[in-house]
Each structure stands twice: as structure tokens, then as C-alpha cells.
Write a protein that binds this DNA or RNA. Sequence first.
RNA 1: UACCCGAUGGUGUAAUUGGCAACACAACAGGUUUUGGUCCUGUCGUUCCAGGUUCGAGUCCUGGUCGGGUAGCCA
Length: 554
Amino acid sequence: MSTPEAPKDFIRTIVAEDLASGKHETVVTRFPPEPNGYLHIGHARAICLNFGIAEEFGGRCHLRLDDTNPAKEEARYVAAIQEDIRWLGYDWGEHLYYASDYFETLYQWAEHLIEHGKAYVDEQDPETIRAQRGTLTEPGVESPYRDRPKEESLDLFRRMRAGEFPDGAMVLRARIDMASPNLNLRDPVIYRILHKPHPHAGDQWCIYPMYDFAHGQSDAIEGITHSLCSLEFENHRPLYDWFLDNLPVPHRPRQIEFARFNLSYTVMSKRKLLRLVEEGRVSGWDDPRMPTLSGLRRRGYTPSSIRSFMAKTGITKTGGTVEVALLEATLRDELNETAPRRMAVLRPLKLTITNWPAGRTVPVEVPNHPGRPELGTREVPFGGSLWIERDDFREEPPKKFFRLAPGREVRLRYAFNVVCDEVVKDASGRVVELKCRYDPESRGGGGRKVKGIIHWVSAEHGVPAEVRLYDHLFRLPDPEAEGDFLEALNPASLETVRAVLEPALAAAGAGERFQFERAGYFWPDPIDHRPEAPVFNRIVALRDSWAKIEKKGG
RNA sequence: UACCCGAUGGUGUAAUUGGCAACACAACAGGUUUUGGUCCUGUCGUUCCAGGUUCGAGUCCUGGUCGGGUAGCCA
């Protein structure tokens, strides 16, 4: 399942070298999400990287829930995380781990540090500890407890575990260097008291290790060779290595950092996504406009398009913003190849053929994919009463508009040419119907060549449906550029229309993706669609060069 | 005026590790087409700056500029 043309990035280069030099016999990576929220497309990069490398080099990739903080984590996220990773196409086999399963070992290692004079219990309150940490330009101040006898620290630490002290009463700190220019090395807190049951470990702990004291050690326990994380952990690497240097770990992993990525027209932080959900700006974590994997899945994105997108954007240490246009182009590329074509009228306008024999219906043979004849054809019923796209008619056509207008001729795709003779309006002046004349000689493309070709659905046979037209959630490339990102929300990110589908679409099965000709790629909404009440989502629109021409001319 | 990291078209990545700056997306111009889709062709760069080494520098050296990260008992 490896993604084609995967670029050889600096991390893969390191892995290849470590394998070639014999430093490692096999590569072991891990994807370590904290179960405190839903996975988004930013996580997909880490997933594709870690699982991708394991796959390409014949190693393995572990799924590890990084659950060291019961105050923020919930068991319900674990299932969602697994579902998202599987959906993306990756499998951790039996290698499902929890950092919390290592708590006992971690605890023993903490005592080991104390016994070697490399950790101490600090009874100062959080404010004092913070004040003593110093600033970016000034060194910190040593805690008065820093040099207390190790026996005393050991006793206190054991009593911390036994639950003798309330939350915040004291912490265990690594004893490193309060003057280090790297703040992470200024005697970091490694254990805190938290009288809170743990979603995975249950109620056996009331002290919990901090990330820094858990991550590298977990890597070591699992035999991880390359521990890949995002750039913001770069400053933590010296600490990561310090623990490995000072603990009797069974293995030596290496941390390598890569740049996180940003996508234009969206936000990625869990906090902001949560706000969208909580304030009801979207329908939930799986709203098709959300950059979450569950949102993209519901929207209709294919996992392969996301993997391929990740391969195209590559892995570097340069922070940047990828244009959503690339994601969309990647999806279109795939769907153009694979999606069967259908006709659907999104904003229906009645077209009546005045010279069509009353009550007559003829089947029109239509290819399922013009570029792939092997996909066969289907019959679409054609009659004298049709729906066409409202946008395909202009009473006063602008320059370069070559669709229908009074007196103009267009081809009804795969069927006949028609000329518009009369425009019918209602009392308010709104166009409600076009009366046209068809050319019996023009069937299937015979007769005059015309510039305009439009799609249609027989009014008698068409199936009404709700169609949800999704657009970017934000109207600015960088929603957080200025002020509140909510002000950048795109008011038109969802438009729901009452459309009419060609009959064949009524039988669409779950998971089937189609191109609605001239409109875009669509699929039945996985939750709301029912055969008797169809609901389709627009996954992505087709490129629309007429819209560009019109925008320029207007 | 701390420490760490980064800088190549509008965007994201390449460049045989010192040898003609390449690919994709976007934009623009044209061609093909029973989807204004697809497909095809073309256009779009002082490789952050200044010096230096070299026959030759995106790549090496020195200095600078700009951008990002870091002061949770979050991860």
C-alpha cells in the first residue's frame, strides 16, 4: 500500500543509513497521540510518516496512547483514534500500547533517579517554582529542597504515591541545572500529584509522570529506533537524552523532529477546533467542513488521496502552509480516474420541449465514464419535460457565455439540440420555465455543432434529493492572521439545495463516489442518506473556468 | 538584547552532496474535447543579504537580516 513517488526526506535518509550501517537491524517507529481529542489532517502527516517508514523499510509501527494526564484524557477518544488510523489504511497489528501501562516501571526509574541524587522532592508551590525557573535571559534559582538527603526524597516520594498528600503539595523534580540556557533542563518537574482516576490505569495511581519523563522511556521500553515528533519538541531533546543517559533503559531510541504543517483556509489547533464544535459553528467533530479525519471521511475524501497528498508535501524542518488547492487537486486527480459519471441538476429550472410528442419517453445511452469505455454505459430516460441547471440560462447573456439564452441553441448532453423560444416568468418576474424546440436530427451529436453543452434530468423520472454543497470553512487563507479566527468564518461554507438526480443515482450504494457531470464529485452522506430520501455531499467541485471568466469580466 | 531551529518561483518540495536550478499545485496564455471537466503546449526565479574559498557555490566558510519555537505541576 506504499504511496507512489514517496519523496526521500531527511528522516528516511537517516533511517536508511542506520539500517545500512548496521546500527539497527530493523526500524521501529510509533505514533503517539494523546487521547484527548480527535485526529486531524495534521496528525495524518505523522501517521503516514511513522507507519509509512515502517512499511517501506520492513519494520513496524506501534500505536501508543500517550496518556499521562488523566485530567485531560478520556477513554472514548481511543476508539475514534483507532478508527481514523485504520481508515487511513494503516495497521499496528498487536502493537497497541499505553504509556500508562509503563507507570510502574516509570515509578521505579524515578526512585532510581532519587537514589542516584538526580531527583528530589520539592515542596514549594507552583508559583514559587515558576518564579525560580528564571527567564529566557536570566538563570533560575535553586530550590531550597534541592540538596535534601535522598532518603528524605525517597520517603516523601513513596508517600506521594501512597496518597498522603493533596494535589499540588509537592512534586518530584529532576536535578539537572538551574542555570541551563535550555529551560527544559532547569530541574523539570517529572511527577505531580493528581488524585484522579485514570481512564486506562484505573484508580491505582494518584501521582502521574510528566510527558518528558514518560515519552523517551516508553520509546526505550518498546524498542523504538526512531522517535519522530514535531519541531516544538526540539528543545526537549536534551532532556529526552538526559533521561536515557541516567536511567537503566533497555534500548536507546533517537528523537528526530520535523515541521508540523498548516493548511490554508483552515485551522488546526485542537483548541480552536473544539471551539467550533462547542459554539455550534459546525455540526460536530465529523462535520464535513472540519479538517478532522472524521470530517474528511464524512465529506467523502478518500484515504488514498490523503496519503498521496502527504507524499506530495513531504517532510522537512521548514514550517510552512500548504495550499488546500493541492489537497483538492490530489482528490480530483484520483476521482477523475475512478468516479463514474452521473447527471444531477443542483438548482433546477424547468425546460419544456414544445415539439416533443406528448407523453413520449426515450432511453438515451450514456457512457459511465467518457475516458474509460470499459466502465460501460447506462440508459437515462429523456422526455419533453426536463430540469436543467438554472445557471445554464441567462436572459441577457454576458460576453463569452455560450449556454442557453433566448434564441440560442445548446446541446443537451448525449441527447438533442434545443433552441430557446420563450421565457416564462412568474408574477415577480422570476424565470420559471423555458420553452424550447428540439432538433430530431441532432440525436447523439448529429447536426449542428454548438458551443454549449449542458446536462439535464427528465422531470418525469428525476429523483429529488438534498445536496449539501461544501466550501472552505474560512474565507481567508490564514484565518488566524488577525483578531478572532471566528470572524474569518465563511458564511457560505455550506449551501443546501433541493436537487434532482437522474434515476440511476437513487440506487447509489453507501460509499460510492460519483462525478455529477459539470458540477463536482459527490457521495451519499454516510449518516443522513436514505434511499427513499437521498442526501448527497459535494466532496469537491470541478474546476470551473467559466466562473473565472465571469469573475474577471464582471 | 538567552538558547534551539529554519530560509530555493504565489504555495509545497527537488537538485547526482561543489558542476546547465527540476517537479507538482496555483495563476496566466493557447490547443484538443459531446463535461467551460480531463488531456496537451507555453509563460512566471538576482536560490534572504554582504563578503570569502574555488576554474566553478543553492550547496563550503565568516558576518548579518528575517521568520519560528521555548519561561505548564499540558502533550
